[in-house]
Amino acid sequence: MADTAHHYDETMPLEYRTEESRLNILGFWIFLGAEVALFATLFATYLVLFQRTGHGPTTADLFEIKDVMIETLLLLTSSFTCGLAVFEMRRRRLTGLLVWLLVTLLLGAGFITFEVREFIHYVHEGATIQTSAFLSSFFVLVGTHGAHVSLGIGWMTLIIIQLLQRGFTPRTARKVFIVSLYWHFLDVVWIFIFTLVYLTGMVM
């Protein structure tokens, strides 16, 4: 904490300039490590329970590859555009940064829309969170990821507002960088949901 204001190093990207920023970025990486453990536990629960369907539908009855692929491509692309936003930030282009962040937001919102539609569709088919152990673990795993994405959308909106108010400062740059780490991480989690939930569910 002591060196928040000094220790400026002009050769670093803006988000790494202050000691406070460097500590926060490292802390967020460590937090992502904890998030890995959190999602690993949800995956473990799902993989232990997903064939225990009781009287309810099975994975093969429910999943449809088309919807899943749309969600996957939306999120993959949003991870890419989020990377472009940081790229623009490091070139000090505020407009480019804002545009790509906005595109990322829209893609994220599109992903959430499709996911909510998918969930509603399942519920209409009688597959609710109370139906079976499989569905409980499915909704909680995929729903936790969805909740993370929704939180990310809210968070990114706050950062866009701060960028519009304050422009580039070491603090806003650090916030953009950290939210980008979060966003890429959610894409990684989705890749495993895509593989271990949907593809596995349709193959087995």
Partner: peptide
């Protein structure tokens, strides 16, 4: 609170999974 089936005795729930986690 929401009557899910993770550790229940019916509908595929697995009470021993709680002990594991």
């Amino acid at each position: 609170l929401f009557d899910t089936q993770f550790f229940t005795m019916a509908n595929g729930g697995m009470s021993m999974l709680w002990a594991n986690l």
